[in-house]
Simulated scan of single mutants.
Amino acid sequence: MELLERLVTVFAENGYLAVFVALLLCGAGVPLPEDITLVAGGVITGLGYGNVHVMVGIGMAGVLVGDAGMFLLGHHYGARIRQWRFVARVLTPERYAKVQEKFERYGNRMMFIARFLPGMRTAVFITAGSTHRVSFLRFFLLDGAAALISVPFWVYLGYLGADNHEWLEMWIRRGQNGIWLFCGVVFAVVLALWWRHKRRMECEPGPR
C-alpha cells in the first residue's frame, strides 16, 4: 500500500485538482492504477481534507474526461495515432490485436467492459476512436454507465477506511474481485434478456 500512502500525501497537500490531474494521467495510459487513485481521493475526505460527495463528482469528471480524450484523439487522427511514441507504448501490436479480438467478440459492449480492464482501457478507447467502431455518444454513455459503478465504489471505500488501512487493504482486494463478479452477473442478465427477446421474436407469426 506504499503507492496509496504516497497518493494520500500528495492529494491531502494539493486537494481536488491533484486527484483530477492524476485521473487524467490514468486515462492517458500512465501506469498509475485508477482504483488506487480513487481510493486515495476517498481517504483524504475521510481524514477531513474534503467532501466525499464532491470527490465522487471530481472522480467521475476526471475519469470521463480522460477516457473521452483518448477516444477523441483516436477518432481525429485515425490509424496515424499508433505511430505516436506514447501511444505505441500503450497500444503495442500484440495489445492492438487483442483489443480487436475483444471487439469482434463483444462488439460495442467492449466500451462498458473496458472500464474494468486495468492496463487495457486506454488501448480500447484509442482503438475504438481510431477505427470508428462506435459513435462518441454511445461510447460516452457506456463508459459513463461503467464509471457510475466503479467511481463511487472506490471513493466511498477510501472514505470508510481512512482510519483503518488494514481493513481498507482487505476490501480493496475484495472489491477488485467483487466488481468483476457484479459485472459478470449484469452481463449474464443482459445476455439472457436479449436471448429471450430474440426467441420470442422468432416464435411470433409473421404477417399473413
Results as ranks from 00 to 15, higher is better:
residue 116 F to P: 04
residue 64 L to V: 07
residue 147 A to N: 02
residue 90 V to M: 02
residue 154 W to A: 01
residue 158 G to P: 00
residue 20 F to M: 10
residue 89 R to P: 03
residue 62 G to P: 08
residue 156 Y to G: 01
residue 169 E to R: 14
residue 34 E to L: 09
residue 191 L to A: 15
residue 183 C to A: 10
residue 185 V to Q: 02
residue 145 A to W: 06
residue 33 P to I: 11
residue 176 Q to Y: 12
residue 193 L to Q: 09
residue 72 L to W: 13
residue 86 F to V: 12
residue 33 P to R: 11
residue 44 I to R: 03
residue 85 R to T: 07
residue 101 E to Q: 15
residue 194 W to Y: 14
residue 52 V to H: 01
residue 183 C to F: 06
residue 168 L to G: 08
residue 150 S to Y: 03
residue 150 S to A: 10
residue 181 L to R: 08
residue 72 L to I: 15
residue 184 G to C: 03
residue 134 V to I: 15
residue 50 G to P: 02
residue 26 C to M: 06
residue 52 V to T: 05
residue 4 L to D: 04
residue 140 F to D: 01
residue 56 V to Q: 00
residue 82 R to H: 12
residue 183 C to T: 12
residue 189 V to N: 02
residue 46 G to L: 05
residue 6 R to P: 06
residue 154 W to Y: 08
residue 68 A to R: 10
residue 185 V to R: 05
residue 92 T to C: 06
residue 18 A to H: 10
residue 142 L to C: 08
residue 47 L to N: 04
residue 144 G to K: 05
residue 29 G to M: 04
residue 85 R to E: 05
residue 95 R to D: 01
residue 78 G to Q: 14
residue 11 F to L: 10
residue 156 Y to Q: 02
residue 193 L to C: 11
residue 160 L to T: 09
residue 19 V to Q: 03
residue 208 R to Q: 09
residue 159 Y to Q: 03
residue 80 R to F: 11
residue 12 A to R: 11
residue 74 G to N: 07
residue 95 R to W: 04
residue 190 V to E: 09
residue 59 G to W: 01
residue 130 S to R: 11
residue 102 K to G: 14
residue 14 N to P: 09
residue 52 V to M: 01
residue 60 M to W: 06
residue 193 L to F: 13
residue 13 E to Q: 15
residue 145 A to S: 14
residue 76 H to Q: 15
residue 148 L to V: 13
residue 89 R to E: 02
residue 1 M to E: 10
residue 18 A to K: 11
residue 134 V to N: 04
residue 38 L to A: 01
residue 22 A to K: 05
residue 58 I to H: 00
residue 85 R to P: 02
residue 81 I to W: 07
residue 70 M to S: 13
residue 80 R to H: 12
residue 163 D to S: 13
residue 185 V to T: 05
residue 192 A to N: 04
residue 159 Y to A: 03
residue 151 V to S: 00
residue 67 D to Y: 09
